[in-house]
């Protein structure tokens, strides 16, 4: 009995310890961000591996999610004779929720896990230690550019996802199901608000980008420097990011759209 309580306590303590380390790392990273603007080429390098490499998966997923929305939405709306509102349904679902959330989940799987594995391997092969001994702070040199790149990439990826998704919905709605294209776009424009919907979606994706990149970098930096440890850290990145994205999405949605 006592042992159970004790192991519970140990678990709790280690969770708090990790949280503390995570926040300290975040602070150190943020302190390294300003000087990056003097060496922006480091960030461009990371934008390439973090952002550009995620574009394809975002394009394809966005297109299909939009097409599915078009199909499902049409089937529901047509019962009420409201199929002209298909554009509204597709656009609002994408811009408010699916764009930021699904692209963040994909981002965590594609870029987040890669970041963790990269940093974890650099740690296990003593590259990070080596840098420290060369008087180069790995947090500023390695982590900070990746953080900024993730932070910049995420809203762009989410915007691409939403735009492609709306296009996919239009392809299915107009091309396949014959919804009037004028009604599709005009209803969408009338009901989708720039501030309320689009900008709130962008804010969501910025928050997700911040959190996912942070988790990925921390897991890599904190990984046990063995191949098994790096593998576990990579899995943790994806799982924790998914939890964080969905949990934060609820909180943000409640703040933005719920009159709480």
């Amino acid at each position: 009995m006592i042992d159970t309580i004790r192991s519970l306590g140990r678990w709790g303590l280690s969770v708090f310890e990790r949280l503390g380390r995570g926040h300290l790392l975040l602070l150190a990273i943020l302190r390294g961000v300003p000087e990056l603007f003097l060496r922006f080429s480091l960030v461009i390098q990371q934008l390439f591996s973090v952002g550009v490499h995620s574009v394809l998966i975002i394009l394809i997923s966005g297109l299909f999610v939009g097409m599915v929305l078009g199909l499902q939405g049409y089937n529901t709306l047509v019962d009420f004779g409201a199929e002209e509102s298909l554009g509204v349904l597709v656009a609002l679902s994408l811009v408010r929720e699916l764009g930021p959330v699904v692209s963040a989940l994909l981002f965590a799987g594609r870029a987040g896990s890669a970041l963790t594995a990269e940093i974890g391997l650099m740690k296990s092969t003593e590259q990070l230690s080596g840098m420290e001994m060369m008087a180069v702070d790995p947090v500023r040199r390695v982590l900070a550019p990746r953080f900024l790149a993730g932070f910049i990439s995420m809203p762009l990826l989410a915007a691409i996802f939403s735009a492609v998704g709306v296009f996919g919905g239009f392809l299915v709605g107009h091309g396949l199901l014959g919804v009037d294209d004028g009604a599709f776009w005009s209803q969408m424009q009338a009901k989708t608000d720039w501030y309320e919907d689009v900008l709130n979606g962008v804010i969501k994706s910025i928050v997700f980008g911040f959190v996912v990149t942070w988790i990925a970098l921390f897991e890599g930096y904190d990984a046990t420097p063995t191949s098994e440890g790096v593998g576990r850290a990579t899995t943790r990145t994806v799982v924790h990011s998914a939890f964080a994205i969905l949990g934060l999405d609820f909180v943000l949605t409640a703040l933005m759209f719920g009159d709480v």
Binding site: G130, M131, M133, M134, A135
Partner: peptide, 14 residues
């Protein structure tokens, strides 16, 4: 540290 060099066992090359 700029005035210290260190050679790691693995080399620790980037």
């Amino acid at each position: 540290r700029k005035r210290m060099g260190m050679l790691f066992q693995s080399g620790a090359l980037l």
